[in-house]
């Protein structure tokens, strides 16, 4: 019994940064902007949170610092992809590389090393219970906003049929800019959960592909909030089971490809149809 609880707790912990990043990605992509830069956002968010928490001694301030870093990064990406109409895959990849280079540089300036922050004491870390509660709250908030508020309607129209939005007198580009910035802040908070919640510092390359995993969860969840949450929890469970039953009957490697294999199955259309927002990646 305690074993089961252990596995579930572990799965929730593993899923929580993914949930933040997937919701961030959802806001961007539903407005019609491809967000391949989740990985980079988690990197800057994780680093900013660790620095913020170290400076102020408070986990909440760390989380706020991450959101702020996400806003700055998201703004740059929004300028590139929405205003200047750069290819979104290329710009997003560029943001990922920028994050990978910027963090070692900043930590060199701040701490004389190449991408690791000093460790936080136990009481200044974000408890994982809070991280999970916050993640679930954000899912509920995003789902409600997209479905039932005017802003959500604009975001959906910007992603599906920008011309209609424009004819209603609302600029789809402005909606996209704001949506990308808000989404980036959420994704960066996912990095914060990783660095000051699940670990005690930001350490080099610690995001380790979780941004791409969140993007996968978003697509697996067909760009909808609750199903994307389900996908994150499923990935968390796969990893949680792997942590517990490693060296058992099922090879580790098989467990690790499971999330990606499942997503391919979904994209191939075996589990209903996955339909991306119509105007996703289109420059108009």
């Amino acid at each position: 019994m305690s074993d089961l609880i252990g596995i579930l707790e572990s799965s929730l912990r593993i899923a929580s940064p993914l949930i933040f990043a997937a919701m961030g990605g959802l806001l961007c992509e539903r407005s019609g902007v491809i967000q391949i830069g989740l990985e980079g956002l988690m990197i800057v968010g994780g680093f900013a949170a660790a620095v913020g928490a170290l400076q102020t001694g408070s986990a909440a301030a760390g989380l706020a610092a991450a959101a702020l870093a996400g806003v700055v990064f998201g703004y740059v990406y929004a300028e590139l992809s929405v205003r200047f109409r750069a290819n979104q895959i290329v710009a997003g990849t560029g943001m990922n590389f920028l994050a990978m280079g910027l963090v070692p540089f900043l930590s060199k300036v701040l701490y004389e090393n190449t991408g690791t922050t000093p460790s936080l004491p136990l009481e200044q870390r974000l408890s994982w219970h809070w991280a999970v509660v916050l993640a679930l709250g954000i899912v509920a908030g995003v789902a409600w906003m997209i479905r039932s508020t005017p802003v959500g309607l604009w975001i959906r129209f910007a992603g599906e049929h920008p011309a209609a939005l424009e004819s209603a007198g609302i600029s789809p580009r402005r909606v996209r800019m704001r949506s990308v910035i808000a989404g980036s802040a959420l994704a960066a908070m996912g990095g914060a959960v990783l660095s000051i919640g699940l670990a005690s510092a930001y350490s080099r390359n610690m995001v380790a592909g979780r941004g791409f995993m969140a993007l996968t969860a978003l697509i697996f969840g067909k760009w909808r909030a609750w199903p994307a949450l389900g996908a994150c929890l499923l990935f968390g469970l796969a990893e949680g089971l792997q942590v517990r039953f490693q060296s058992g009957a099922i090879p580790v490697q098989l467990m690790q490809v499971l999330p990606y294999a499942l997503t391919l199955v979904v994209l191939a259309g075996f589990v209903g149809r996955a339909r991306a927002p119509q105007a996703l990646g289109r420059q108009d």
Binding site: S10, R13, I14, S200, S203, R204, M206, A208, E239, V243
Partner: peptide, 9 residues
Amino acid sequence: NNPPKGKEL
């Protein structure tokens, strides 16, 4: 480079 996973294990 994966302290969170190390901690889970």
